[in-house]
Design a protein around this nucleic acid. Structure first.
Lengths: 229, 229
DNA sequence: CACGCCTGTTACATAGGCGTCACAAAAGCC
DNA sequence: GGCTTTTGTGACGCCTATGTAACAGGCGTG
């Protein structure tokens, strides 16, 4: 059931709030990553590219609204839905929140159920077409909508894990992913498997990608991980 | 396919509701334009002359009922079907809604399936030719109006659930639908049934589709869901 | 009320993947 | 060139996701 487990990033400075939220989201089958301030949040977005972000408005230093603004003005992160949390209920803030580009807005104290519903809604809005349904790299084409992969006209048969692995690579061609990052992203956190398992699946992916000839597009970065191209 | 794609105008002040609706309508092949209040809605009607309008009852300033009244008293816009959405369930409101000229009326929380069905119904009334009444894939033909399905000349007998399942697949051949998405669309949200039920119905659909021979057009995507072709 | 049709659930069979291990190969490192 | 560390990969047992038959309940029809 880890199939395509969506990742939620919670950026919230207050521990209790953060954990309650995380607990509920995890119980609902989401993968959760946490940041306790804006800076850490931005870093995690970089590193882990979550599917959706729950963002607290009031935080020391880098405020939620500022984080939101930054994410929404960068092409790579513009499409990640952001749900803003705020203790203020003034209409003014609501407007400002949405103006900065937040996709939805929840006023504290909120009902956890309601928040979850909104998370799902936002996710449904963006998820089916994660980044773009069609990823290309060199002569490899991956269609996220149909789950079909081809290399120069030949349809390839990949297992679920190899498919997710390849999707990950193709989202950012050239980027080096550590085995840990891949385990997190492809397998899902709190799954415990040996890091070497990644190697095995990389091997299987390579075999699938080269079964009709062509060079191996997966690059091993010794001591660091793997990358595409 | 995109030729003569019908346009739906959604007038709804709440962002989340609006987007859920838009998402589903777009997935169904409609072109969607959005307005978040009555004034904007009226402007967009002018500007874009949609084929049908989904209108929220409760909105700040210019209420849905007022928007409806204005549209229905102007000759140019009188024939655009309007479906009213309301959180109220009182019969009184229903009557008042229809009296102002709304063509249909849906009470929140509504099933998305139901609403979509009503959109299609209204649309069929006004633009009989443009609604996807006839879907084709390979040698399978599905007629949404008569609920008849045939495969290379042979009429097939499907139960209601199998029919909706097949419709969903045929709307976007190749697209992979997760069990959860299928439950949402075919069964309706907030219906609670086991996800494995989907498998059983897929099996029944397969049997129906292959009863006169022919290959199985339903593709199982391990760890992800099902797709047509 | 009996009957037929559909549905959701359960139980069981099965295949297709998955993770681990062990060893080979390659790459660094002195 | 030896020695150590990292990576590649074939083999294999296990386990989970899927296919499917059987069953019981619901609901409308005659």
């Amino acid at each position: 059931m880890t199939a395509d487990q969506p990742t939620v990033l919670i950026i919230e400075d207050e521990l209790a709030q953060r954990e309650v939220l995380a607990y509920n989201l995890e119980a609902d089958g989401f993968r959760v990553i946490r940041a306790e301030n804006g800076e850490e949040g931005l870093l995690l977005v970089e590193e882990d590219m979550p599917d959706i972000i729950v963002l607290d408005w009031m935080m020391p230093n880098l405020s939620g609204i500022e984080v939101c603004r930054r994410l929404k003005t960068r092409a790579e992160t513009r499409n990640i839905p952001i749900i803003m949390l705020s203790a203020r209920s003034e209409e003014v803030d609501k407007v400002r929140g949405l103006e900065t580009g937040a996709d939805d807005y929840v006023v504290k104290p909120y009902s956890v159920i309601e928040l979850m519903a909104r998370v799902r809604t936002q996710l449904r809005r963006v998820r089916p077409s994660t980044v773009g349904v069609r990823l290309e790299f060199d002569d490899i084409i991956l269609d996220a909508e149909t789950h079909k992969v081809s290399r120069s006209e030949n349809a390839l048969k990949l297992g679920p894990t190899e498919f997710r692995l390849l999707s990950t690579f193709m989202e950012k061609p050239g980027r080096v992913w550590s085995r840990e990052q891949l385990l997190d992203r492809v397998w899902g956190r709190d799954i415990y498997v040996d890091t070497r398992t990644v190697d095995v699946h990389i091997g299987r992916l390579r075999k699938a990608l080269t079964q009709f000839g062509g060079s191996d597009p997966v690059r091993t970065v010794r001591g660091a991980g793997y990358a595409l191209g």
